[in-house]
């Protein structure tokens, strides 16, 4: 339970995902489940696809029609609570924030990890963006087997 161990429930997670048909294009998944005073996801979105409104404690709502999956919100979120998800053939492709060292390298296979911190699959590193624009929060693009689309959340280096 989120309040007790930091793990969002399946219902919470699913509430943030659009249908698989929509996910043919890349979309932002905002895993921000409580009212905290914060709005950079909304103000940084160049497409006005994330709505918070005047009261910055309001939880973000993504307009999937406007979201292009560009990933700016991913590295703008102070809680590192946003990923971009997309279905590409039989794979789920994610763009996720990564703030540890060493950074992954394109082509490497890392462990795919779920929200409880357990290794659930392998993840292929497809792209690593680490420029001045992302301000030290690397944007890592990975792909994992499609069946893990609702469980996968981050990557861990294989030791």
């Amino acid at each position: 339970m989120l309040n007790r161990d930091g793990v969002a429930s399946k219902e919470q997670v699913l509430s943030r995902f659009p249908s698989n048909e929509v996910l043919v294009k890349a979309k932002a998944i905002t895993e921000c489940y409580e009212e905290i005073p914060c709005n950079p996801c909304a103000t940084s979105c160049p497409f006005d696809a994330i709505h918070i409104g005047e009261d910055i404690n309001t939880k973000p709502v993504v307009d999937f029609d406007l979201c292009t999956g560009c990933g700016i919100c991913v590295y703008s979120c102070p809680g590192l609570a946003i990923v971009i998800a997309q279905i590409v053939n039989d794979k789920a492709r994610f763009k996720l924030p990564y703030e540890l060292r060493p950074l992954p390298i394109v082509g490497e296979i890392w462990d795919g990890v779920n929200r409880s911190g357990d290794v659930i699959c392998k993840a292929l590193i497809e792209k690593v963006t680490y420029t001045a624009r992302v301000d030290r929060t690397a944007l890592v693009q990975v792909s994992v087997p499609l069946e893990f689309i609702h469980e996968f959340i981050t990557v861990r280096r294989v030791l």
């Binding site: 161990d5 793990v7 905290i36 590192l80 990890v113 409880s116």
Partner: peptide
């Protein structure tokens, strides 16, 4: 948990 859950989730997945 006392703090923001986004921080808690960040730790848990590590």
């Amino acid at each position: 948990i006392g703090g923001y859950k986004v921080h808690a989730s960040k730790l848990k997945r590590l």
